[in-house]
Computed example of a mutant assay.
Amino acid sequence: MSDIIVIGGGIAGVSAGARMANDARVILLEAEEAIGYHATGRSAAIYIRNYGNAALRALNAASEPVFLEPEGICESSLLSPRGLIYVALPEHASAIEGLLQGATGMERISPEEALRRVPILRREAVADAAMEPGAQDIDVDRLLQGFARLLRRRGGRIVTQARVNKIEREGGAWTVEAPQGTFTAPIIVNAAGAWADAIARMAGAEPLGLTPMRRSAVIVPAPEGHDVSAWPLFACAGEGWYAKPEAGKLMVSPADEDPFEPFDAWPDDMVLAEGLHRFQQAVTMPITRVERSWAGLRSFFPDRTPAVGFAPGLDGFFWLAGQGGYGVQTSPALSALAADLCAGRSSSLPDEVVRALAPERLMTN
C-alpha cells in the first residue's frame, strides 16, 4: 500500500510525484510505455513569463528560479537564451497593446528591429511588434527525467503500461486497477492530462469540463542562406501561427486549437495547409517541403486555468489537470503547490493564486 497514487506520467504527474515523495510513499501509474509520451513530449519547450492569465503568470514567475537552479533535479540550468517576438499584421495592429498590458519584461520594438532579428519577415506585413527578450528554451527531457530520478531517489515508483481501468473507494482508501496490478492508497492524484475528466468519472467525482484541444506543428528546412539558430521564436500577434528554430530548421505551428477526443492526436492536413499559408503571408521564404509533422493535446478548463486541489465532497481525490499549453513551464510551481496541499501545508504562492486554481470554482453542483 502507498500513501499517494499519481495517475499520469506527463510532466505534471512526474513533478508532483517527485515533490510528494519527500513526505509520502508514492506510486505513479502511466498508461503508455514511457513517461512524457503525449503532451509533454510534444511541447514547444519554451519559457514565456507573460504567457497566460494572471494566475498563470504568477506560476510562471514562481517556476523560473527552479529552472535556473534546479537543485535535486538537474546539475545545471534548464533554460537557454531564445527570446520571443510578436509581429502584428496590419489587421492585428491593436493586438500588440493587449500583449503589452500588464506584461513584465516585454517591450514594443519597431518593425525594422523585428526584421533585423528575423530577416525573412515581410516588411509590409509587420505593422507593429513587441519583444520579450527573457523568453528561453526549456530542456524538457532533462526536466522530466530529472524529476523522474528524484521521484525514484525518494523511494517512489513509476509503473508504465498501467492504464487505469477501475477505481473504487472503500474503508478510507482508493483501489486502482490496471494491467500491472491493483494499487491502494488514501489519496489519488488525477494528473491524467486529456483523460482527467474520464478518470474523475471512473472515481465517482464530478467532471470539471475539460476540453482537450489539438495543437499541430511541422518541421521545415531553414530558409536558404540563413542560420536560424540565434533567431527568437516569432509569432503572429493574432495567434494565426508561430515559428521557432529547432536543430537548424524551423518548427512552424498553425496555432490551432481544435477540440479533440482524448486519444493519441494526429495532425490534420487541411489545418496544416491553412496554417502554413498564413505563415507564408508574413515571410519571404517559400515552403517547398515538410520534413515532419505531429500533433499533441493541450487540455483546458473553461477559464483556461488549471485545477489544483482536493475535490470537495470526495475524500482523497486530488485534481492536477487543465494545464493547457502551460504545463511544462508551470510544473515547478504547480508540483510544489500540489505537494503542499496533499501534505496539509501552506503554500508559498499568494492566496489569490491558490484560490484561482481551486477545483470548486468549476463545479456545477
Results as ranks from 00 to 15, higher is better:
202 M>F: 11
202 M>L: 15
204 G>D: 09
204 G>T: 08
204 G>I: 11
204 G>W: 08
205 A>E: 00
205 A>P: 02
206 E>S: 13
206 E>K: 02
206 E>Y: 06
206 E>R: 10
207 P>Y: 08
207 P>F: 08
207 P>M: 12
208 L>D: 01
208 L>F: 04
209 G>H: 13
209 G>M: 09
209 G>Y: 10
210 L>S: 03
211 T>F: 09
213 M>E: 15
213 M>A: 13
213 M>V: 13
214 R>T: 11
214 R>A: 08
215 R>P: 03
215 R>H: 05
215 R>V: 10
216 S>Y: 02
216 S>G: 08
216 S>T: 13
218 V>Q: 08
218 V>G: 02
219 I>M: 09
220 V>R: 02
220 V>Y: 12
220 V>C: 08
221 P>D: 09
221 P>N: 11
222 A>D: 10
222 A>L: 06
223 P>E: 07
223 P>I: 05
224 E>H: 11
226 H>R: 11
226 H>A: 11
228 V>E: 00
228 V>T: 10
228 V>H: 02
228 V>P: 00
229 S>K: 14
230 A>P: 00
231 W>G: 01
231 W>D: 00
232 P>M: 11
233 L>Y: 00
233 L>R: 03
235 A>N: 07
236 C>R: 02
236 C>H: 15
236 C>Q: 06
236 C>F: 06
237 A>E: 01
237 A>T: 02
237 A>P: 05
239 E>N: 11
239 E>R: 08
240 G>K: 11
240 G>R: 12
241 W>Q: 02
241 W>P: 01
241 W>S: 00
242 Y>F: 14
243 A>P: 04
245 P>Y: 09
245 P>N: 05
245 P>D: 04
246 E>F: 07
246 E>G: 00
247 A>N: 14
247 A>Y: 11
248 G>M: 07
248 G>I: 01
249 K>T: 04
250 L>R: 00
250 L>A: 04
250 L>D: 00
250 L>V: 05
252 V>T: 06
253 S>T: 15
256 D>H: 01
256 D>T: 13
256 D>N: 15
256 D>V: 07
256 D>L: 06
257 E>M: 12
258 D>K: 12
259 P>Y: 13
259 P>R: 06
259 P>E: 14
260 F>K: 03
260 F>I: 06
260 F>R: 07
260 F>L: 12
261 E>D: 15
261 E>R: 14
261 E>H: 10
261 E>C: 08
262 P>Y: 09
262 P>D: 11
263 F>Q: 13
264 D>V: 08
264 D>H: 09
264 D>M: 04
265 A>F: 05
266 W>M: 13
267 P>H: 07
267 P>A: 04
267 P>G: 08
267 P>N: 11
268 D>W: 03
268 D>R: 10
269 D>N: 05
270 M>R: 11
270 M>Y: 07
270 M>Q: 13
271 V>F: 02
